[in-house]
Design a binder for these strands. Sequence first.
RNA 1: GCCGGGGUGGCGAAAUUGGCAGACGCCCAGGACUUAGGAUCCUGUGCUCGUUGAGAGCGUGCGGGUUCAAGUCCCGCCUCCGGCACCA
Length: 900
Amino acid sequence: MEQKVIDQPTTRPTDHPTPKYIPQDFEAGWMQRWEADELYKTAPADERPKAYILDFFPYPSGDGLSVGHCRNYVPTDVMSRYYRMKGYNVLHPMGWDAFGLPAENAAIKTKTNPAKLIAQYSANYKRQFRLIGISFDWSREINSSTPEYYRWTQWVFLQLYEAWYDPRADAARPIAELEKELGEKGTAAIDAAQGIEGNFPRLSAAQWNAFNKRERSEFLSNFRLAYRKPARVNWCPVDKTVLANEEVHDGRCWRCGSQVIEKNLPQWFFRITAYSERLINDLDTIDWPEHIKLMQRNWIGKSIGAEADFKTGAGYLRIFTTRPDTLWGATFMVLAPEHPFVETLTTAEHKARVNQYVKEASAKTDIERETEGKDKTGVFTGAYATNPVNGERIPIWVADYVMMGYGTGAIMSVPAHDQRDFEFARKFHLPIRVVIRPEGESNEIHSLDADTMERAYPHEGVMVNSGPFDGTPADVAVEQVTQWLEEKGIGAKRINYKFRDWGISRQRYWGTPIPIIHTDDGEVAADHDALPVELPNVNSYEPTATGESPLATIPEWVNVTLPDGTHARRETDTMGTFACSSWYYMRFADPRNEHAPFDAKEVNYWCPVDTYVGGAEHAVMHLLYARFWTKALYDLGYVNFIEPFERLRNQGMILSPQVKDGKYEKMSKSKGNVITPDEMVSQYGADALRAYEMFISEFSQATPWQIDGLAGTFRWLKRVWDLMLAPNERPAANETTAQADRVLNRKLHQTIHKVESDIEAFAFNTVISALMEFTNVMYDLQNQVSREMFDHARETLLLVLAPIAPFMTEELWMRWGSKYSIHQQKYPQYDSAAAAEESFTLVVQVNGKVRGKIELPVGVSEAEAKQKAFDDPNVKKWMEGKNIAQVVYVPGRLMNVVVT
RNA sequence: GCCGGGGUGGCGAAAUUGGCAGACGCCCAGGACUUAGGAUCCUGUGCUCGUUGAGAGCGUGCGGGUUCAAGUCCCGCCUCCGGCACCA
């Protein structure tokens, strides 16, 4: 390692002109050599500290990579190369999220097998990655659409299928343990842990034991972490498949942009909601951008409140509220149109109108309800409910602003303190009663008058008109009322979450087959030894008109004969691709394992991922699902980590340099403004491209591509090149070079330090500016420093530059005759003593304005600094004839003299 | 509407805990070298005033405030970008 090149004659190419920097001459050759030498092959788990640096699993598209995509691949590569030089065992792999609609739709369009397309597209990506010098360990490449991979996606599916969430353990457990418990105790013990209501039917041990196979199977669906149920789902009529809630944006398909409609279909789900609380809480343990954490919290949408029962003619009507302190202000009830009580409660007199309303509401999709604005509609059922807190009789209405999918599908309406209820009450002339007085107003209720108020007062305050609770202050009102409800047996504390279970069924060909078989006795899991359930080869991938998967049209695949000779049908839905990407980071730890998804030692050594980088668009999809799978596999004992991604960073978008309407446009194929790394490399070389990708701006910020900026980093590298190949005929170190040597050495160590801390902090743009500064200082001092210092500085610059410009630094390293490869050298050691400054500039202000700057030695006394400052002629001028009121002295920085 | 994140020269952008605003790069201008320069090197480059010089005033979206000192903290707005959107 210590091969000093200082005295080697190869550093003095005096007899021939300095070769020009022509990156295209050597870049491709070096990449080949590194791969042939397996320079970037990752070792298995060992004693070294590890660094797992991962980019989001890309879907390989036919368009290839743009310079925008390189925005994250380059910095993570720099970081990987940096940690390798620092002695870490680095895992920096790449693979393909190859299932899914884009490939399938392209396959249909071009009548090509999607696997073939993926092979083509990924080969092109790989070519581009090599072109720009990304140091992936290709021996670990994975492709989620191969049986070798999806076999284990199916395996995870079955783990979830064969598990349930036990609220008492607050963890997933094997379903067999639940079956045993049901046979002994029924659901009694689980009930108790669930609070006033769980999401499943009650059952005694006797009932369970009397169940036949099919009944048991159906009952267990209420518990399994992977389960099937009929559901109203988002259906994309163009892609002809189901979309998860997260995949619907503004009522449109996130992929093709067409209007989503609703359909009723039996669907497979993962019970992610069981993990709501843990998914929220564990966010506190990971280093992610706050806005991503916030988006996840909002998506999960936790609300703490209470449930309460209102007596009606059809039985107790249960409502959920976050404001139990407003119970005395309820003046009517509202049911969602789909609520089961609508049918039973509505009086004969109102039947016709209510039926009509419900019919219209169900015909409308959520999107239509939304586009119609927030104008409240609804009808009276003719029925009444009794408010359990004061015995009051209040009317029950039906309205579509209450949704069946949240809470209990029924609400108590408190128009004085809820804006939606307020609007409804005003429209239908329902009474409004104030029960919360804004705090800090002495004027009591007059400040909120039911007849004249123009909007609800939804905030907190002191309770009034609330019987025993009058005068209760805001901070304890909710809690005290909730407790009181529990004591009286009227209601109980309840936590609700907005988000729903993760729907994974897709009625398409190109996905992981769901390894389930439907028998006469209900569904059964495919045999673990029979995995993978392979996708059959087909000639046509067209989705069916009926909404069934194309797999359903292949009888020889669908129909199976069980060991006992009975016939059964395979599940024909496939899994959405988020299943594949929910565990791929684990597979990279041990990608060729044929006996298990991964070896426990390898996965627990490499995971969690230390640094995970990708776009912010996956905030609530992939990033939430992957966290869920990790926790489930943790609960079931397969991995020993709870969160998959320790540190997450999002790269900003690279925009087109073209300005339209005063704004930079996004790059897109349709706008024809995509800039590719291929063009840039052919013009400036990969190293300049890499440096510019880092330099362009702060990593997370959107910014336009500027070709002149790339030309700037090219020019800088050319300057470095020339400097490195310049002959060194300087004198040996002596008294005349001592000063310049010290200055250059100081800058050198400051640069090492800056580059190290900035790479680790994701401040890549300032890494480049620091290296540019160092280069400039070397140019400034090159004729004053000694031969030894000059070469030491050159070698150091080359080494710290190696992760950023791998090609050029290797080429120069070899031209210097140093030992191959520069990428296997140790990173230069930072010396804080050498980096320490000898003097500093003291800024002297008079009344906050800069009036002088003086150079002082580090460690100067305050008295001496003051003396020197006051001697400065300009400072003197501004102080003349004034009284010094105060002198603020910040050692090493600034002095502010306040005069009057 | 609600929640988040931004707004700094002609352009991309820097700026620990409040402590020289504009590092670094681009563009532009001047000079050197040169047959030539669109290569390279050097110098200058926030705006305004000041003939030069020394210097002065202004300046981080807008308006206030706190402070010896504000891009940074507080209050009120404008605007752009993301997310959520009748969630009881």
